[in-house]
Design a protein around this nucleic acid. Structure first.
Lengths: 347, 347
DNA sequence: CCAATCTATGTAATCGATATCATCATCGGC
DNA sequence: GCCGATGATGATATCGATTACATAGATTGG
């Protein structure tokens, strides 16, 4: 690969002049022409790594998420990449699989690459990585926690999961349900624990203490949620409603209900969590607690870039967005099953 | 940020020794201890950018895709990231929005970052970027085309879209359909043009020439597919089956059918394209032409890394994978609507 | 006991850019 | 016609690592 010296030699000038050419400094028309042809003949493309070493920047943002194939994340990542692009940043993406050890390696790699800031969807804390978490809180590098916040030392863009879940379960309670199960992700993921808390609070306000067997923790796959729900449904005293705390879990729950020949919401109600662009086409039309994924991505990316560029400074900012309860049919509010309107304004 | 010189100074040795420490070369036990404490007290993390400049590597792979929020891509990206991780590569991700101009900028950025190879899902060619495409074919950098192949000069991992579509439409024809519409993405995306070709061939074999109004090109959003399908359904002579050429289009078609109060497959059949992990929960259970997204990601990533490391050399490799026709209910084969079995072995 | 070998380490050039500082030619004004 | 301002350019140190080469001290063997 050609470097700036080769170009300089071919154009008959110094590397400084070539560098000036690339940085819009004054270069005579004649040298400019020579440099241009030199660049063309050598198919030269400047080495951004070298430039960045000198400039102590990198133009890179890191994004660490549990799993891009989890339905909630693509919209977040998409928005982040868009915002990053608009500010001339590139994105390095890592999946942790909810493994804190892998997460810690990702952070190291990003630091090493002189990445200018990190958007982090934290994996659940594990006992053997306390040191890593302590380090995380003090790394001299802008980090914005997204979705989950392991500590209060840093900027974060979160969702009020407790209130969201509370609102959803309240909705079920208002409809008369008293035996409500929750199918949630195990592994102590904070967002799910918060949703559990919202669920508990709503029930408590109606004097209900959920039975241990109605709190079901499982892996966040459709298959696992399916099996767990099958067991739940096969119990003699099955609940009248199920709250599933993310998209795949919701689908697993629905799959189990369908496979047992039950109808939702007629036989059992389902409250889901997280929205998708196909939610208006799905049957039953799901009542869900909807997180504003795109907005989360946008706010987090803008906050991070603001910190990097210095547009934003001062104390820690914690943006807490409100999930929205989107009422459709799966909890039994609407009984009209023939017209499932689809809003054409929605993308 | 501390650098290697600071560490050397604090440890009372030269930078060369510190470097040796990091690269597993022989260092005396005593210096090793001093270096370790120096690293700790300074919270030093080596600058990979500088190292890579010297070593002429970067440990980075680029992945350029149309849009991560398009349902087909997350599984591909996930697998690629996994394979990259297993080989100690990091991934830079870019969305082009099917805009070739943006794509070309992405390629420049990746080159600049000395990225070692690129996985490229090509945006459709636009007349004003011929020069870019010519350059692309000759860039001195391993590139593996994924899903779409703009030229035959490079490695590619593709799917036989013509045969896939042909097989699907054959299926419809065998079921007796003769008026089959296609709802496809406009913008001359090659994969969709190939699916159109497969559709045409299958029809031709039955002596059918599709009416121009049965070939519907639209933007790949649910909303646009919905509107386009509504118009189609409202025609006096509506077709008896619709082939939708990707996931969002399929959902838009289904949404339109539902919103017009029609039943699928009883009133109209739908052949979809692309699978998701929730496909077994969706109603109607869709018969689809399924692309092996994970396999594509894996093969492409392994091919790219093989080229980079030199494990794979020799002439251009073109891996063509077979899409699978997954027959469920939406074309009217199965009439048993009560048992929608869900395979628990599926993730 | 000294040459030969090995081990641990330092010195300095290098990767490919940028940017400071110096230099030199040109030009307008008085 | 001389002086200072302006513009174009070159030489060179620098960013933070690696590594070839040199060197000093320790070890080994005959």
């Amino acid at each position: 690969m050609a470097n700036i010296r080769d170009v300089a030699k071919l154009a008959g000038c110094s590397t400084a002049t070539v560098s000036r050419f690339f940085n819009q400094k004054s270069v005579s028309a004649d040298t400019e022409r020579r440099i241009k042809t030199a660049i063309d003949t050598l198919a030269f493309s400047p080495n951004i790594v070298a430039r960045n070493l000198k400039l102590k920047r990198s133009g890179m943002l890191g994004m660490i998420i549990p799993d891009i194939s989890e339905p909630f994340f693509p919209a977040v990542v998409k928005t982040v990449e868009d915002v990053a692009w608009a500010h001339d940043y590139s994105l390095m993406l890592f999946n942790t699989q909810e493994d804190e050890n892998r997460e810690s390696q990702c952070v190291d790699i990003l630091r090493g690459h002189q990445c200018e800031g990190i958007l982090l969807i934290k994996a659940p804390p594990s006992p053997e990585h306390e040191r890593y978490r302590a380090k995380l809180a003090t790394l001299p590098l802008p980090i914005v926690y997204l979705d989950r916040s392991p500590d209060a030392e840093r900027d974060a863009v979160l969702v009020d999961n407790i209130t969201g879940a509370w609102r959803g379960v309240q909705h079920l309670l208002k409809l008369g349900h008293r035996r409500i199960a929750i199918v949630m992700m195990g592994r102590k993921v904070s967002t799910h624990l918060e949703r559990l808390e919202g669920y508990r609070r709503a029930l408590a306000e109606h004097g209900i203490e959920p039975a241990g067997q109605d709190i079901i923790q499982t892996e966040p796959t459709i298959a696992d949620a399916y099996s767990a729900t099958i067991q739940l449904l096969d119990r003699a005293d099955r609940p009248t409603a199920i709250f599933a705390t993310n998209a795949r879990l919701t689908l697993g729950v629905i799959a189990a209900i369908k496979s047992r020949g039950l109808r939702c919401p007629d036989d059992i109600s389902v409250l889901g969590h997280d929205g998708f662009d196909w939610q208006d086409v799905f049957e039953p039309r799901l009542t869900i607690v909807d997180q504003p994924g795109q907005l989360m991505g946008r706010r987090a990316a803008e906050l991070l870039i603001g910190r990097i560029t210095g547009t934003i400074n001062g104390p820690v900012r914690r943006v807490v967005l409100n999930p929205e309860l989107v009422v459709r049919e799966s909890c039994g509010v609407y009984r009209d099953h023939t017209t499932s309107a689809f809003s054409a304004t929605q993308s």
